[in-house]
Amino acid sequence: MSYFSDIYKGIKTLLTGMSVTGGYFIRARKGAITQQYPDNRETLKMFDRFRGEVVMPHNADNRHYCTGCQSCEIACPNGSIEIIWDRAVDPETGKKKKKIDKHIYHLSMCTMCGLCIEACPTDAIVWAPNFENSVYDRSKLTKILNQPGSSVLDGIED
């Protein structure tokens, strides 16, 4: 008599499925996951692991963590990152030391793979949640990540 037990089981499992979706239907008013994007631009908070663009955080004294090791430049699969660097004499030790002049990031080429951020030994570059990247001129998508006049924080490379 598996015929009738099959029918019973079939109806039971169908009703289980319907109760699940019915629950969603009832809770939809409160739990809607839709972001009404242009309207909630002020309050919209992107989730933690969102990959918008690569930025270099600076502290209050205009200092960053980038030592100019070029790991990110090597890790980048399509050359989105270019680092222009120089050597300067360190006033404390009197030795010549590598420092970045410009950390150039081509957002227009970037595939958001995140290999540069994984490669960075000092966590100098991180993901930012900004995704409004449309501009009228593509040269605006080539960004210099280190702010003018900034320098590396002391003691980072030791």
Binding site: Y24, F25, A28, A32, I33
Partner: peptide, 10 residues
Amino acid sequence: KVAAWFQLRI
């Protein structure tokens, strides 16, 4: 509308 509510959309 019903489809949206079933899928937690608006």
